[in-house]
Design a protein around this nucleic acid. Structure first.
Lengths: 247, 247
DNA sequence: CGCCCCGTTGAGGAGAGTCAATGGCTGTGG
DNA sequence: CCACAGCCATTGACTCTCCTCAACGGGGCG
């Protein structure tokens, strides 16, 4: 669960004893192969998920076959905190690479949060960040050109991937196809291919072996109007949000 | 607060004594004029908001002037539950019509939730619904044609508006400009105007006095691939999610 | 070895954008 | 009471980004 700890620590360092709480949760580990569904639309959702290894996508399908990927899920990401309201999933989650995923029962998770305010704060922050990522995806798809969309997405993935790995570099592993990128960005795979070729020609990125190197991050960020504020990786000024403690 | 009660009751009816809890919150009412900012990007967020009257928009601006409206906020909507993590706002919220808005202090709100599980469940559901609306907005902007986007948005607004009013009809008040619609849907005002004219010609909608009548909701929903599952207005099967009660 | 998936490239088409002009409505001030 | 400014919706003509259809080639894998 190192990826999860790296992620949550972006918000606030988590002391060992509190982290140990996580180890006592009622949880279950599963492995998914590429293309396997982790959550199916319409299924009841009563567990939360943590990705330990691999990439997954959350998407919706239209009845005529069009697909829109809503977001990418990377190691360390926590998802479906919404499951705590025990509704039915309104979307599908599928593994794109081999994934190790931990499921935690709703009740077990809630009681852990109620015992530890810092943990609750960190998970709440993760939920806030997830929502901010969705909002930024709306801006990306709604108002950016193809080139800007691709660069913007690469920059986000680079930041998020490194956050899970607890490092900082200009390399992004990109274990997905042009079609996946296209379906995330509201484009076609043909146009993604063309645009990325142009970006390579323009020395914005290099590609090798399912990984992208961003040649000049500052320049690319400017071209793509990428501002990482929305990832909320800076520490809040006020102390962690307080949940009622069980006395 | 009737709009809020109507909204939350979609999830689960709220008994009077529990509702009365809401009246005891530490809150403050403010009126905003059209164009006034309710939340500015970069400001610390430490309160939650409820819209009592009027429409507001949440948007992000690019440095070159492009604007993307992330979502519309209608009477009864609760927003910035994210504020509970006391981060800085990564977007701006502006009144589009005159708005009455109630602010509730974070601490007061949290303690009310901790005293009432049904209330906590209802607000959690509102947060889940808000996120589902964002996801659907991504699908709309990413994969639908101009005509589909507009129809889809109108159907969503119709459902949400009627939810706040506690009724069900085919009329949507639409107190916004073509430019607002365009900036929400990733289009230009010119194209929105053209497309809506075509929709009027095709007898899909009628417009009169800043209100739209949807002539055949079922047909429009089919054309626009609108499926209201994402609004989660059906009741969950399991009982409300339990928060730890203060003993 | 051969299949299939994926990325790439080309040619042509369509949906949405840009630029620009017009007209209605509303509010305001002489 | 009328004139005028400002905003908004609409429409036309033209442009351009991105899509569609299609062909080709490379690489992984049975």
């Amino acid at each position: 669960m190192i990826a999860l700890r790296n992620r949550l620590s972006q918000f606030s360092p988590i002391p060992d004893p509190i982290w140990a709480e996580m180890g006592r949760l009622d949880r279950q580990k599963m492995t998914f192969f590429p293309g396997e569904d982790v959550i199916k639309e319409g299924e009841p959702a009563d567990r939360i998920f943590v990705i330990r290894r691999g990439w997954a996508i959350r998407y919706k399908m239209l009845d005529d076959g069009r697909r829109q990927i809503v977001n990418f899920m990377l190691p360390g990401d926590v998802f479906d905190l919404q499951a705590l309201a025990t509704l039915r999933a309104d979307h599908t989650v599928t593994a794109v690479t081999a994934c190790d995923i931990t499921f935690v029962q709703q009740e077990s998770f809630m009681s852990a949060l109620s015992r530890s305010a810092p943990l609750a704060g960190a998970f709440w922050w993760a939920a806030v960040q997830e929502e901010a990522i969705l909002r930024e995806q709306i801006v990306r798809v709604g108002r950016l050109s193809a080139k800007e969309r691709i660069g913007h997405l690469l920059l986000e993935l680079q930041r998020r991937q490194n956050a899970g790995l607890g490092r900082e570099q200009n390399e992004v592993g990109l274990p997905i196809t042009r079609t996946d990128i296209a379906d995330a960005l509201g484009l076609t795979s043909v146009h993604v291919s063309r645009t990325m070729s142009a970006m390579r020609r323009d020395n914005l990125i290099e590609e090798e072996n399912h990984a992208v190197r961003i040649i000049d991050r500052r320049m690319l960020a400017q071209i793509c109007h990428f501002d990482d504020d929305y990832l909320h990786v800076r520490r809040p000024e006020k102390p962690l949000f307080q949940v009622p403690e069980r006395s």
